[in-house]
Amino acid sequence: MQVLIWGLTLLVLALAIHLIVWKIRLPRRQTKVLLQIFFGTLIAGSAGLWTHPELSLFGVAAPEGWTQYARIALLFIAFTLAYMITYSGLEADSPSLVMVQTIAQAGDAGLPRQTFFERMNDDVLVKPRLRDLLTDKMATLQDGRYHLTPKGRTMARLFVVYRAVLKAGKGG
């Protein structure tokens, strides 16, 4: 019970800090700041509990021993990574989501094919992703050409290996 109560308490605290920071100012590199907030909360919260073992929440005492802290960290990290995946879907509209929303807005009458293709252009589907690559420093734009940074190459390799393991072909 200690792991659940204290792990969820740290998660709620991290989410509260996240919301406060976003209300003050939306960070430019949101994913990086989210990771800093969540892992900073885990580290600071664990240190606080370690140095104040007399704390209690809902009648549940502070964790005892490093194994309890390891379990709290495991729970916290699992939830954090799941939240990061979910948040990335909220941070920027995926091309599929943009397409579905565009068709849904047409209602029962449907959306003419030509209108769909006029609305689904590079400004909507491609350019925002290129800006994200530049913002996240996965690519640079030099002399009118995009180049992957070491971080971008690492990410690309990760996806190539992942797709190879799944025996997935090229494509989306």
Results as ranks from 00 to 15, higher is better:
residue 77 I to F: 12
residue 142 Q to Y: 06
residue 122 D to H: 05
residue 130 L to C: 04
residue 83 Y to S: 05
residue 53 P to I: 05
residue 106 A to C: 06
residue 77 I to C: 10
residue 6 W to K: 00
residue 85 I to V: 15
residue 88 S to G: 05
residue 57 L to Q: 03
residue 137 K to R: 15
residue 95 P to G: 02
residue 18 H to A: 12
residue 103 I to M: 07
residue 9 T to M: 09
residue 109 A to T: 07
residue 55 L to M: 11
residue 9 T to W: 10
residue 51 T to D: 10
residue 28 R to F: 11
residue 166 L to Q: 07
residue 5 I to M: 05
residue 134 L to W: 01
residue 59 G to Q: 07
residue 101 Q to S: 12
residue 117 F to S: 01
residue 158 L to C: 01
residue 170 K to H: 07
residue 53 P to M: 04
residue 56 S to I: 09
residue 142 Q to C: 06
residue 27 P to D: 08
residue 9 T to G: 12
residue 47 A to D: 06
residue 114 Q to F: 07
residue 79 F to N: 09
residue 137 K to M: 10
residue 60 V to A: 02
residue 165 V to D: 02
residue 160 V to L: 08
residue 85 I to L: 14
residue 66 W to E: 10
residue 6 W to Q: 01
residue 123 D to G: 02
residue 82 A to L: 14
residue 5 I to K: 00
residue 14 A to E: 02
residue 98 V to I: 13
residue 147 H to E: 15
residue 139 A to C: 04
residue 37 I to D: 03
residue 158 L to Y: 09
residue 55 L to K: 05
residue 136 D to C: 08
residue 3 V to A: 06
residue 123 D to W: 00
residue 138 M to W: 10
residue 55 L to G: 05
residue 9 T to I: 11
residue 154 T to S: 13
residue 158 L to R: 08
residue 64 E to N: 12
residue 167 K to C: 04
residue 79 F to M: 15
residue 134 L to M: 04
residue 19 L to Q: 12
residue 97 L to C: 03
residue 78 A to L: 14
residue 112 P to M: 07
residue 99 M to W: 00
residue 44 A to W: 04
residue 155 M to C: 06
residue 65 G to C: 02
residue 108 D to G: 09
residue 42 L to C: 04
residue 126 V to T: 08
residue 47 A to S: 08
residue 163 R to D: 00
residue 93 D to Y: 05
residue 54 E to D: 14
residue 56 S to T: 15
residue 107 G to C: 03
residue 21 V to L: 10
residue 45 G to A: 05
residue 12 V to T: 15
residue 158 L to P: 00
residue 79 F to A: 14
residue 67 T to V: 06
residue 83 Y to G: 06
residue 163 R to C: 00
residue 56 S to V: 11
residue 121 N to G: 01
residue 44 A to H: 05
residue 83 Y to R: 07
residue 160 V to P: 00
residue 100 V to C: 03
residue 19 L to P: 07
residue 114 Q to P: 00
residue 141 L to K: 06
residue 62 A to S: 12
residue 14 A to T: 03
residue 157 R to H: 08
residue 32 K to A: 15
residue 135 T to W: 01
residue 35 L to F: 14
residue 32 K to N: 13
residue 63 P to M: 03
residue 58 F to Y: 11
residue 13 L to H: 11
residue 80 T to G: 06
residue 113 R to K: 15
residue 132 D to P: 04
residue 111 L to R: 04
residue 100 V to N: 05
residue 128 P to V: 05
residue 122 D to F: 03
residue 3 V to C: 07
residue 137 K to Y: 10
residue 142 Q to S: 12
residue 9 T to D: 09
residue 59 G to F: 04
residue 131 R to E: 15
residue 141 L to D: 07
residue 69 Y to Q: 07
residue 40 G to F: 02
residue 82 A to N: 10
residue 125 L to Y: 00
residue 125 L to H: 00
residue 161 V to A: 10
residue 131 R to C: 11
residue 30 Q to F: 11
residue 137 K to N: 14
residue 140 T to A: 07
residue 25 R to S: 13
residue 104 A to F: 11
residue 18 H to T: 14
residue 14 A to F: 01
residue 69 Y to W: 09
residue 12 V to P: 03
residue 39 F to P: 00
residue 10 L to I: 08
residue 84 M to E: 10
residue 16 A to F: 15
residue 108 D to L: 13
residue 109 A to R: 12
residue 39 F to L: 13
residue 65 G to P: 03
residue 168 A to S: 06
residue 104 A to K: 15
